[in-house]
Simulated assay, not measured.
Amino acid sequence: MTLDIGVLGYRFMGKAHSNAMARLPMFFPDAPEINREVLVGRDEEALAEAAGRLGFSRTTTDPAEAIQEVDVFYNLGPNFVHPEYSIEALEAGVPVFCEKPLAPTLEGTEAMTEAYREAGVPAGCAFNYRFVPAIRYAKELIEGGEIGEIHHVRGRYLQDWLVDPEAPWSWRNDEELAGSGALGDLGAHTIDLARFLVGGRAGEITEVSGQLRTFVEERPTEDGETREVTVDDAYTAQAEFESGAMGSFEASRFATGHKNDHTIEIEGSKGSIKFSLERLNELEHLSEGSRGFETILVTDPEDPYIDHWWPPGHVIGWEHTFVHENYEFLSAVESGDEFEPSFEDGLATQRVLAAIEGSDASGERVSLD
């Protein structure tokens, strides 16, 4: 069976996922056969150019038309288009893969998740950092008891692309369109990764205290005017996990000198792990009785996903995480199995984001119970 794929969005994430789909038959021969059937967007001229470049058979400016004619629907557009078309696809029984955060608001995310529960088909949320081999290896160490009882979880995601006050306004600066700024754009990844690594009920966050900050209140537009920035440029949060572990999280799009610095550290009673996205092939591990961290190059054939790629030491990159992610999702669609991270994971993360916003607004600690 060949799965016909429809994709809404052809810029950043559209390119990342299209590249992954093209790589699947080369490196994952047991992946489902797919046909990049239709690319969806608003600008017909730009859409036609992108379809040819990304390998799609045709285009349409009507998402509803695409949904009716495909086996799988990828919603990779801006946050504000996620709820309507994802719900429409799920109500038609079409599996959905949606970029994070699932929606600009908690209410929209709840509606999407309810549609997923009723549809009975896979619906994935695009937390691609779960599919980094070093992260998978870290998960194995934690589940194997190598670091013992978890005490601390620290995560940060730092970028600097908005430091310049003359950087242009975009939909990512608008609360109605994006929902939040650094919190949802970057913090969602960190919160999900923390939940994934700690695992199970122990990994659920029960309380948060958060602070949001906007450094530049207005930005220039293409027409020479300015528009108000209505989202956060940075956030920090303290958290408590169901297990009793303490968490601290931060993200900023104003962290001068940091391009895509996503790090997570977990300290336990027997050892610790440290990971940085800017050193994607490495995991630092402190084992019980050791005096220092060991840097592990996660590129051996027995490491997660690596047997599909290159000989040991021949590193992989950011784009490979999308190949792994698409392989797992499309395999779940073909088999009818569950896929994780699902919309349930997207909702769990969104609840934490909403609680952090609520804490900033009220100045009080917020319980997620």
Rank of each mutant, 00 (worst) to 15 (best):
L277K: 14
N128E: 11
G363E: 05
D303W: 04
E37D: 10
H152W: 12
K270N: 09
G317T: 12
A202D: 15
V96M: 08
L183F: 01
F131M: 02
S335L: 11
V333H: 05
T2E: 14
E217K: 14
G187R: 02
T263V: 15
G181C: 00
G244I: 08
M112D: 01
E265V: 13
R23D: 12
T113G: 02
E37I: 01
A89T: 04
K100N: 12
R201V: 10
L297K: 06
N79Y: 10
E107D: 13
D4R: 15
V70N: 00
R213Q: 08
T190S: 10
F241H: 04
G93P: 11
D4E: 09
R156L: 07
A111Q: 12
Y85Q: 11
V315P: 00
C98S: 15
A354F: 10
I191Q: 01
L24M: 11
F322V: 08
M26T: 05
C98G: 05
L197W: 11
V81P: 08
E143S: 14
N326F: 06
L353V: 15
T206F: 04
F80N: 12
H82C: 11
R279Y: 11
S269G: 05
I67H: 06
F249I: 06
P78K: 00
S287G: 05
P133S: 02
E99I: 09
S287I: 03
E99C: 12
E118T: 07
E265H: 12
G247I: 07
R156Y: 03
A119E: 10
L347S: 01
A194Y: 00
P101V: 12
Y327S: 06
